[in-house]
């Protein structure tokens, strides 16, 4: 089937089999290998992408279902080539990753959380990443990274009246 997707801001036209998951489409047809294939049945969270701005598991959707929608992968969150987003920066600073397998998904979940809730409590951060398995860090530094990113993003230049 022919589909059209907005991938990281660029419209792409593709031919997919109905059974191709959004994850496989991103990885195999668009070479966006930052979306990781872990369990491929919705448990590990490694394949999380932003679907119309909301964090979803790309292994639990078929690409045909995404027709006309906007998908953001980890490749789409950087402000420019060679740069990192605030959240990616804080993951580096706090050692919020080790092997890196869960990291793109963790970063995207953090993006979705902070877009929605600029001042999350620790419990809210923990809840937000609860669907993503990390086997290295023990999660503490990931929580720290997201809290630090939230603090930085709150302090960033914004119109005065937009501040809480």
């Amino acid at each position: 089937m022919r589909i059209e997707l907005d991938i990281n801001g660029a419209v792409r036209e593709l031919e997919v089999e109905p059974r191709t998951t959004l994850l496989d489409c991103l990885r195999d047809q668009l070479a966006l290998t930052g979306a990781h294939a872990g369990c491929e049945h919705g448990v590990c969270g490694a394949c999380t992408v932003l679907f119309d701005g909301v964090a979803v598991r790309s292994c639990l959707m078929f690409a045909v279902q995404a027709q006309g929608s906007a998908v953001t992968t980890i490749e789409g969150v950087t402000p420019g080539p060679g740069e990192l987003s605030v959240i990616q920066d804080t993951f580096c600073e706090t050692h919020g990753m080790q092997c890196g397998y869960c990291t793109p998904a963790m970063v995207l979940v953090a993006h979705a959380l902070l877009a929605d809730n600029p001042e999350p409590t620790r419990a809210e951060i923990v809840d937000a990443i609860s669907g993503n398995i990390c086997r290295c860090t023990g999660y503490a530094q990931i929580v720290e990274a997201i809290a630090l990113a939230a603090e930085r993003m709150r302090g960033a230049n914004r119109p005065k009246d937009a501040r809480k």
Partner: peptide, 9 residues
């Protein structure tokens, strides 16, 4: 129910 990412769908 599940996680935020599964409740989203």
């Amino acid at each position: 129910i599940g996680h935020a990412a599964t409740r989203a769908r």
